[in-house]
Each structure stands twice: as structure tokens, then as C-alpha cells.
Design a protein around this nucleic acid. Structure first.
Lengths: 220, 220
DNA sequence: GGTCCAATCGACACAGTGTCGATCCGGTGT
DNA sequence: ACACCGGATCGACACTGTGTCGATTGGACC
């Protein structure tokens, strides 16, 4: 199951369908239907028939645009991670300006991007268990973030702002993992969760103490 | 879907099947088959027919013992969490003796229990997205742990060992979430992960700095 | 006005789930 | 010794959803 085949073989940006014709609107319609339906029910409870009907086509025609239901989600995820990537931009390279403020900015940006597409993100977290492609894309994206954080931590250590400690990569993995799981609980409202308006403060506090091993004024 | 109906209505310990007769062995056989198959492939790739055949019965007969595939996993999860609960025992009440050592003990015990049943734990993490009952059980269990940690943090603060800071509950949620996600990655070998032999050290370090806001000697 | 091909769908094959009714069989009461 | 009861078992069915194949449409381009 590749993300999506390219019915009209006219340049395939990001491996998805491309090009003109009414078929393009159809693809958008499928994606829009998926994101809309995800607000009402779980991904597993959405059938290909639902997506097809929502886009005004029959089920077999759906397969002309996407090889599977999962491929639709994969496309959606791709967009969200791109948006997150863009939202963070150069925050990390400006870290030294004012570390706490920059870290907060970073976490806030992520929070807003994920929160704005919570339906998609939650769905991905759910099928990551069953779908190898989603798992791979997610892993790839996370690896990029981990490396970015790892690099930033090392830079802070080099310039003497942060003390030595855990291997930077391990610390980066732990902190990223924490964020992912905490956001999941908060957005899904499933199990013990931090309130949405507090979650950035909580995450930031753990990040700062873990990285700088110092005591910033308690945010509460 | 309740965990399992009770075919022979003769006391239902933990809501599962009870009592004598060859039917009891059958139920065990199903559970054993499930845990065995989980070592080879994902839960979603195991059919009820696989479980039934593995236990030497037909598919309809499976339904005599469990109302669904998920119920089997639910029973398995139940056992693991009970084991974890038992393994931790009274570690937290003995915290004041030697906090770093006790926290390490706690995390190590969890690590060993989960690691010993990683197939079951990973499967649960995967279906948690699609199955409401697993989600609920998981949430319940995690809530218990969060409360235990929250209480411990508050005790440490009261006796002056830990400084004030984030609401203890939020901190407990964040740390528990981190552990869960980090262990998942480590055991699943999926995406960025901490090496299995380092994971306790890494988690412990973040816990200690987040709770005590002090600098213990870096473990590496 | 004919050709081509993207786009479309009806109909099929398949896999898995859950249910119903019939049957088997070991223990129990008389 | 025998009829009976209910736990245990399974064959066969209905249903849902997926993915594929072959045939049809209709607009663009020669």
C-alpha cells in the first residue's frame, strides 16, 4: 500500500495524485470528507463506502484515487506534519536569545498545530498500531524532531547554558515521547489527562528542568 | 462486549469464566494460544479462527468462552496489570528511606513486568485506539498509578524533600505518559527509541529532575 | 466522426465476524 | 438401567466490508 497511486501521471508531488481535470476535485472531496467524518466517529468506523459517497462517487471509483482507506489518512497526516514543520520554523536556531521563551514558543506551536487538526492526529495515533505505513511515516517525522531537539540540547550544553547529563538523543526521545502521549490524552479526553489550557505549561516545565536542571519560577 | 460471559455460573473471579470441567482448560488454551500468536504477528492479524484452532475447538465454540477477540486481550491485560501492581507493592510508602533508590526500584519493576509481557502490552497499546473496553481498562489502571505517584510527590513535598512546582497530578500524568510511550517505542522497536538497557536510567533521570529539581550525579 | 484514455461503476470473489439451531455426552435422580 | 438435563460443541447461515475485473461513458484532440 503506497500512499496513493497517480492516476493521471503528470508529476506526483509527495507521491500523491496530481494534475488537472475534475478528478482533482474528487480527490480533495475525499480528503475533506475524511477529515469531516473524523470529527464524528473513529477512523475504524468509517468505511470506504462512506468516503466514496461523501465525495459523490462509487466505491470502486474511490480506488482510482486512493489504494486504501489508510492512504487517505496518510495524506492527511502528511499535510499536518508539514504544517507543524513550517510552524516551528527557525525557533530552535534562535534558542540562545531567550531559551525558556523559545522552548515555550516551540511547544506552543506544536500544541496549536496538533490541536487544530486533532481529529487527524488522533486517528493516526489509533491506526499506527495496525498500519505499517502510518507507523513508518510517523516514525520518520518523529525522528526528524528528535534530531532537531537533540541538536539543540547539545548546542545549549556546548555554550554552557545546559549542564551535561543524559545522552542528548535519549533525552530528546523521552521528552518528545512525553509530549506525544500527553497531547494524545488531552485531545482524546481519554484516561488521565492534563487540561488543555495547562498542557503547554506542564510540558514546558518538565522540558526545562530535564534539560537545564535548574529551578525556574513555578508557572503556577 | 463484556470481558467474558460466564458459561458455567459458578463464581466469576474477575468477571471471567470460572469453575471446573474441561471447559476451563479450553479457556486457558485460548489465552495461551493468544499470547503465543502475539509473539509472531500483530493482534489485528490474528483471527478468531486462529485462536479457536490453536485451542482445538471450532470458531463457534470460541464464542462460548469469550464474546470476542478483544475480550481475550482484555483478560490478558488484566493479568499483566495485576502482576505489575503486585510487583510494585509498597515501594512508594518506603520512599523516604532513600528516594532515588526507591524511584529506581519502582521504574525497574514496571520495566521488568512490561518487558516480560511485551507482546500483550504492545497489542493492547495497538487496539486501545479501536476498542473502547481496552481503552477503558487501560485508563482505569493508569488512573490508579497516576494517583499513587501524585500522592507520593505530595508526600515528598510535605516533608520538604521536593520543592513546590507543577500541580502534583499534572506532573504525575506527564511522567507516567512519558514512561508508557518510551517503553512502547523501546519494546516495539518502532521509531526513535531508547535502548532497552538504558531506558530505566533515562526515565529515572527525568523523573528525579522533574520532581526534585536538583542535580543528581549524571548516571552516564 | 473517429480514436483515445481518464474516469466511472456493476458485479463478483473473498475474508472475517457473529448467530441459531441441532447434536453430543457425561452426570444425576429415580 | 434409563430417561433427563444442561454444559459443550459444531455446521451452516447472514451480514459487513474489502479489493478486483471487465465493461461503459464522455470529453479532448486529431
Amino acid at each position: 500500500m503506497t500512499p496513493a497511486r497517480t492516476p493521471t501521471p503528470t508529476a506526483a508531488p509527495r507521491g500523491r495524485r496530481a494534475a488537472r481535470s475534475s478528478g482533482d476535485e474528487r480527490e480533495s472531496a475525499i480528503l475533506a470528507t475524511a477529515e469531516r467524518l473524523l470529527h464524528e466517529r473513529a477512523f475504524a468506523d468509517i468505511s470506504i463506502d462512506d468516503l466514496a459517497r461523501g465525495a459523490g462517487i462509487s466505491r470502486p471509483t474511490f480506488y482510482f484515487y486512493f489504494p486504501s482507506k489508510d492512504a487517505v489518512l496518510l495524506t492527511l497526516l502528511d499535510r499536518v506534519t508539514e504544517e507543524a514543520e513550517a510552524a516551528c520554523g527557525d525557533v530552535l536556531v534562535r534558542l540562545a536569545e531567550d531559551p525558556p521563551a523559545r522552548w515555550r514558543e516551540l511547544i506552543t506551536r506544536f500544541h496549536e498545530t496538533f490541536g487544530g487538526h486533532r481529529a487527524v492526529v488522533l486517528a493516526c495515533a489509533q491506526v499506527r498500531g495496525t498500519n505499517a505505513e502510518v507507523r513508518r511515516l510517523w516514525a520518520t517525522v518523529m525522528e526528524r524532531w528528535v534530531q532537531a531537539i537533540e541538536t539543540a540540547i547539545e548546542a545549549e550544553r556546548r555554550r554552557g547554558a545546559a549542564p551535561a547529563g543524559l545522552p542528548a538523543r535519549d533525552l530528546a526521545i523521552a521528552l518528545n515521547s512525553m509530549n506525544e502521549r500527553v497531547w494524545y490524552a488531552t485531545f482524546a479526553g481519554d484516561g488521565p489527562a492534563v487540561a488543555e489550557r495547562d498542557v503547554v505549561d506542564v510540558l514546558l516545565d518538565v522540558w526545562l528542568t530535564a534539560i537545564y536542571r535548574t529551578t525556574p519560577p513555578p508557572p503556577a
